[in-house]
Amino acid sequence: MEESKIIKTSAIKSFIKRIYEYWKKRWIRARFKKCKSFNKCIMYNGMAKLSDAHSGTYRFIAAYCDEKLGRRLLEMGFVPGEAISVLTNTGAKGSIMVKVKGSKIVLSNKIADNVLIKR
């Protein structure tokens, strides 16, 4: 009776552990893939989208959006050639925090999608 209980709990534990490890691996792999594709994109095209960027310092090339937003980005300091350091990127549907001209700026993912950067 006692033994079967122990076996049961250990089975559940190992099952949970396996699920956890599976998802962790998946998550790491997806992240690695994303970073790799981003790095490749920068390597071969010389530029990439800001929304895909992982943390690091890049240079701003251009923003493709309507005039109003483009002007606003310009005013915030997104001038071609300006250094942008990406601090955090919460991925799709999230937002991305960058440091431009010494101040932190948050862009939603939709906007960052239209911003091109290079190394």
């Binding site: 606003r72 101040s103 700026i105 948050v106 939603s108 939709k110």
Partner: peptide
């Protein structure tokens, strides 16, 4: 529509 796309400064 989407929630407003924002560009904002974190002071």
């Amino acid at each position: 529509g989407e929630p407003a796309h924002f560009v904002m400064e974190l002071p």
